[in-house]
Write a protein that binds this DNA or RNA. Structure first.
Length: 271
DNA sequence: GCTGTATGCAGAT
DNA sequence: TCTGCCTACAGCG
């Protein structure tokens, strides 16, 4: 379920399991045959994540493998020897002890250095990268007439945030999705950024999106435990019609720039 | 078996 | 703002 934390977690897993190892590389599904063949038999150097993009460097190959998971993509790492191919495996990387299977990516391609540079330079700061500069994103907010909620999904403004983190961080900061980006002051923005850094780091650590503070967890509130489709505990994402975990007001949903946005009309106010 | 849906994004209109 | 697309799975008949 790919937001930025998924890609950073994946990069770490690839480095741990495949970094410095000579790999076999193939495209069982057949749509990355030439690229996979260029990688085959080489040493995988390292993987790195920029927002929702994964770049894999290989010794002796100028190009990097560029992966974007899109809505449905996933990469599964399996331990042990030869694995059967299940479903549509676009790219398989393997050595004797592990196999990584990439399924359903929006992008899986070889990208030459100028392409890598162009890709990275069009992304906004990534809360999961230690050198990221949140002020660069704030300047973009200041020069826009769009709602903050829309810009949070714009990868050239801030890289790695998807629909779940967007909804949840706006809830946690008490900001309505209709709030104009230019009405956000820098202090408010930096607090939101810090919250994203903490939430997304936790997501990298656990592999799921959990945003509910301990005091609002169902047992602390005397409620029945909930089960969320996407595997984490959240305040508002896809909870429309259900009572807000803080104030019991029904959570609302609307479409904004073609994507669903979820919020509590009482806890979140226009800034 | 079919339909709808999904944490995304690019390109056309 | 709209369309198409990458794939798997739940829900339905």
């Amino acid at each position: 379920m790919p937001e930025g934390h998924t890609l950073h977690r994946l990069a770490a897993t690839i480095n741990e399991r495949f970094g410095g190892r000579r790999v076999r590389s193939s495209s069982p599904q057949g749509r990355f045959v030439d690229g996979a063949a260029r990688v085959d038999g080489r040493v995988l150097r390292q993987a790195d994540a920029w927002g929702k993009h994964l770049l894999v460097e290989v010794d002796g190959l100028a190009e990097s493998v560029h992966v974007h998971l899109g809505l449905w993509g996933s990469m599964a790492v399996l331990s042990g020897g030869a694995q059967p191919v299940v479903g549509q495996v676009r790219w398989r990387v393997a050595h004797d002890e592990a196999t990584a299977d990439l399924r359903g990516p929006a992008t899986c391609e070889l990208l030459a250095p100028p392409g890598v540079e162009a890709l990275v330079s069009r992304l906004g700061p990534d809360p999961l990268r230690p050198d990221a500069d949140p002020t660069r994103a704030w300047r973009r907010l200041q020069s826009s007439r769009s709602p903050l909620a829309t810009l949070l999904m714009d990868q050239s403004v801030i890289a790695g945030v998807g629909n779940v983190y967007r909804a949840e961080v706006l809830f946690r900061r008490g900001i309505a999705p209709t709030t104009r980006a230019r009405d956000i002051d820098e202090e408010t923005w930096l607090a939101l950024w810090s919250d994203l850094v903490a939430l997304m780091r936790e997501g990298v650590r656990t592999g799921r999106i959990d945003t509910v503070r301990p005091e609002h967890e169902p047992d602390a509130m005397g409620r029945e435990p909930r089960q969320d489709d996407h595997g984490g505990e959240v305040y508002v994402y896809r909870r429309d019609g259900s009572p807000c975990l803080v104030c019991d007001t029904p959570v609302r949903r609307a479409e904004l720039a073609g994507r669903n946005v979820f919020w509590c009309p009482v806890c979140q106010q226009d800034g």
